[in-house]
């Protein structure tokens, strides 16, 4: 990723390839440290808060599973999805809910004025936020995803992917989803600064709309009037629907990955453009 995207990675002509590599390693180490800090940050307090959170999420997935068992026939496929596939889709959506709906926290940094501090650190601003987002995702992988994955058989759900290939492509798809999520966050932050208003209202709105359009709650294929087909081409679908369809083998993996990659290619430059145009206003807004 070029430095012009403010990831904090060194680019351009360096005196030698070796020096360039060393710079890259140093930049990566800085971001790795930030990532680690983000991963342990919310472990600073009582463990039972996390346990309570896990309980809430477990209840949510139980409810969604029961809903699908109510509306879908036990055998046969509905809009190309069997009941077993939908149950796996739902469970994996919940297990990876944190990773598939991650935000960078840039909106909060704008609200609190913390954004100004980010410019004082010797690392790219996008890079800092992305590293924090990935760190939080790793923590949730350990605390939520794996335990829920292990509990799946007890809930009557097969948590395994459609195949080894599907699992590998799922990992790639999640990485692309994270990149799309970060880019959307930065674009959204720029829009908020342009509007200069209502940070919280906009945040809530985006979360609600993206949960619906991303297919995290209801698989897009099961929506009426064929609107899921349309939603599938929106960037939100790259956040959850694409990796989940790849995992459950209910979509063309290569096409879905290509769509995600296309959104990364479109959204990151756009994010950079809006960010650069707004840089001064961003700091003023935050500070």
């Amino acid at each position: 990723m070029p430095n012009s995207l403010d990831l904090g990675l060194p680019v351009g002509r360096t005196s030698s390839a070796m020096a360039g590599a060393v710079d890259h390693i140093r930049a990566a180490r800085r971001h790795l440290k930030t990532m680690t800090m983000a991963a342990v940050r919310s472990l600073d307090d009582r463990g039972w808060v996390l346990a309570g959170d896990f309980g809430l999420r477990l209840l949510r997935v139980l409810l969604l599973l029961s809903l699908w068992r109510t509306v879908l026939p036990e055998t046969g496929a509905t809009s190309g999805m069997t009941r077993a596939a939908v149950l796996t889709y739902t469970l994996i959506a919940e297990a990876f809910a944190s990773q598939l709906t991650l935000g960078t926290g840039i909106e909060l940094a704008l609200t609190s004025g913390d954004i100004a501090n980010r410019f004082l650190r010797p690392a790219g601003v996008f890079g800092q936020f992305t590293a924090e987002m990935v760190g939080a995702g790793l923590r949730d992988l350990l605390l939520f995803s794996l335990p829920l994955f292990c509990l799946a058989p007890l809930l009557g759900v097969n948590p395994l992917p459609a195949g080894v290939g599907a699992a590998l492509l799922f990992a790639c798809s999640v990485a692309l989803a994270l990149l799309v999520a970060a880019a959307l966050d930065f674009i959204f932050a720029s829009i908020m600064v342009l509007l200069e208003h209502s940070v919280y209202a906009m945040m809530k709105l985006r979360t609600a709309v993206s949960a619906l359009l991303s297919g995290a709650v209801i698989p897009l294929a099961l929506m009426p009037w064929g609107i899921g087909e349309v939603f599938g081409y929106l960037p939100f679908a790259a956040l959850a629907s694409a990796p989940l369809r790849i995992y459950t083998g209910t979509g063309d993996a290569l096409l879905l990955l290509a769509l995600q990659a296309a959104w990364v290619a479109v959204l990151w430059p756009l994010a950079h453009l809006m960010w650069s145009a707004n840089r001064e206003r961003l700091v003023t807004h935050g500070g």
């Binding site: 342990v40 472990l43 600073d44 307090d45 009582r46 463990g47 039972w48 996390l50």
Partner: peptide, 16 residues
Amino acid sequence: QRQRSERFRDVLTNLF
């Protein structure tokens, strides 16, 4: 005041 170890292997002790 809670004290927290910086070591990753102490995560569970820190939590509970």
